[in-house]
Design a binder for these strands. Structure first.
Lengths: 362, 362
DNA sequence: CGACTCCATGTATACGGTTACATAAGGATG
DNA sequence: CATCCTTATGTAACCGTATACATGGAGTCG
């Protein structure tokens, strides 16, 4: 219809490869080969073709190109949302690497809804993306995993590649690449940091059972407690989503419910930390003088609030995902390799050694 | 080649509409119509087809669909970078609205390079996106504008629509929609806010001649000064890019060069404000006690540093862009309408009334 | 100098849908 | 009951590119 309308108003069909061929006085095959770079040498012909292309302002039709069997030019990334800085940074890495490899980037968002995620994968399958990169944590639900595994197989059958980025593998028989980063290790390290400064009652914000990312972070938190022989109080693990507002809410509710029973706060990510900090301040609690606070992610704004946190190589995650997906030979049915990127603490000024005293009432 | 490899390893061609038709015992046309929703009623047939689709796990080939003349299913957005929150929020709006309209979103990044931007527009043209949304400020260069105008015409000829989002129109004869927001008004308002509290020497950070966005903001700044009969000192306009590090640099250099000759700072955007705040603190200048600070954009992290700023309806910008582009009749050659969204001040705690005294040496 | 090789180019088909047009069946109307 | 209209479906012609195969000319070597 769009085409029809254009031809109505201007009588001008979009210029095709045939127009170029006619103008250059060669066959369409020659034009196609020259433009695809599938051509050893051509000299004069090449010149004629390129001039015709320029004069006619010709651009190839990606749909036709894709249909005719050329390799796909696009890479798909699926994230919760684009404004979440965590995802945005991974997406940036994907973008960067995709551009380097001469690929286009298709972005889908799910809003954290598993149904939408599955639907979006389907969409990307229609779109014939060369690889589909799924970013972020996910519920550890068996039915869900099975459906995703099926999609992975369907993608593989179509010559595409599923990449799980920052989430656990689906199983050894599922053709999906995995690029993870060390959630548990980072959480362990930063919890140890707090413990080594004397803190014993550390509030963990953002626990969420069966969500893989918070689960891994909680695991690191618990492991550090255990290794330092500090008793684990489940009451210190507060449930909540990985968002700023939730951070605020969790602290507010906690302080409203009773006297303050913690000296440090380990926020599940930097957004929670920002919200928590705001809530603490609203209760006249200063960070770090009255309460120590740490986060996870090391987003740029965290430098502004002097937050000690765990650095996650977001961009590198995205870049690695693309690199692995495109580098992997199409027909390989060998076991799917995985990669685990490291994380490390960034110490700023949101933590103070605990001076021995009973926690006061906040 | 990918296809070949798949068929080698499994002998399985991807399932096509013909397979579905065969299985359902109908013609391909019927399948196509049912799946496209171009079908009034079918009852039994519809059931058979949908079952076959499910059983074969069929997904349509978007390339073939696009080639055959179906309306495009994709919307393209081109931004500087995905991690810049300003762009990310606009992109989120685009995503949201695109999803509502059942479209896919293709994202291109330019890194602020006009050449890459033009190249990316070309790419999106190949991809036959239904509309191409160009976000962000741009250099006001005539040659560049002319090339972009040509692309706009080429897109229009192909039934696509160029949308300029947060940047000025190209000219009345160029078929491009414009969705702007009120930079000048916002800058005027927030400058007036500072002036009304007694500030007279207001440093502007992030001037950049011939870049449209900072230019508009500077214009609002100057207009407010003029209306309040405060003499305009060009020396108070500091040049720099719209980035965090630049904010830091500008303040640091300024304070290193001589005594502090301002009582308030108007940062060209929130990122600059964050950097500037950091630099001020490094010089033992507190915000707002010693120096008042305001920004522009109202990004979420700005709440954490209590920044008074100008709210920009980022998401609404993106959503409006998509809505207008898709709503506009394809064959219309009428004058291209523009939209200007409003901005407003958000007062937090980064500004204090000026107590009359000579600015001290910082 | 002839046979063979290699490379540039042309010819024609396939890719997987959509849709204009044709056709058949069923219902309404006189 | 004949006619006309409507609706569901089938048939076949594209859409614009890539590429397998065919062809022709130049270069090489015996």
């Amino acid at each position: 219809m769009g085409r029809r309308a254009a031809s109505d108003s201007g009588g001008r069909r979009p210029t095709t490869i045939r127009d170029v061929a006619a103008r250059a006085g060669v066959s369409v095959a020659t034009v196609s080969r020259i433009l695809s770079g599938t051509y050893p040498g051509a000299a004069a012909t090449r010149g004629k073709v390129l001039r015709a292309v320029r004069e006619l302002d010709y651009v190839a039709n990606a749909n036709a190109r894709g249909l005719a069997g050329a390799r796909s030019r696009s890479v798909a990334i699926i994230v919760n949302s684009v404004i979440s800085p965590h995802y945005a940074h991974v997406a940036q890495g994907v973008q960067t690497q995709a551009a380097i490899e001469g690929k286009l980037c298709i972005v889908g968002t799910t809003g954290g809804d598993p149904e939408r995620e599955l639907a979006t994968v389907q969409l990307m399958r229609e779109e014939h993306a060369e690889c589909v990169i799924l970013v972020g944590n996910v519920i550890a639900d068996d039915a869900y995993r099975e459906r995703m595994a099926n999609y992975a197989r369907a993608l593989a059958a179509a010559g595409s590649q599923l990449v799980l980025c920052g989430r656990p593998a689906l199983g050894s028989d599922v053709p999906a690449l995995v690029v993870e980063y060390d959630n548990t290790g980072g959480a362990y390290a930063i919890t140890s940091h707090l413990l080594s400064l004397g803190h014993r009652r550390i509030l963990f914000l953002g626990r969420r059972d069966s969500y893989t990312t918070p689960e891994s972070r909680v695991a690191g938190y618990r492991a550090a407690l255990a290794d330092h022989r500090v008793p684990h109080d489940p009451g210190l693990e507060v449930e909540g989503r990985m968002e700023r507002d939730e951070g605020y809410r969790m602290i507010r509710d906690r302080l409203a419910a009773g006297p303050r029973d913690f000296t440090a706060v380990f926020a599940g990510n930097d957004l929670i930390a920002a919200g928590a900090r705001q809530a603490l301040r609203a209760h006249e609690l200063r960070v770090p003088e009255d309460v120590s606070l740490v986060g996870f992610d090391d987003l740029p704004p965290s430098a502004d609030i002097d937050l000690t946190t765990v650095h996650v190589p977001h961009e590198e995650l995205g870049r690695t995902a693309v690199r692995m997906a495109l580098g992997r030979p199409r027909d390989s049915t060998a076991a799917v390799p995985g990669v685990m990127l490291g994380t490390h603490i960034v110490v700023r000024d949101s933590v103070r050694p605990l001076v021995r005293e009973e926690p006061r009432v906040g």
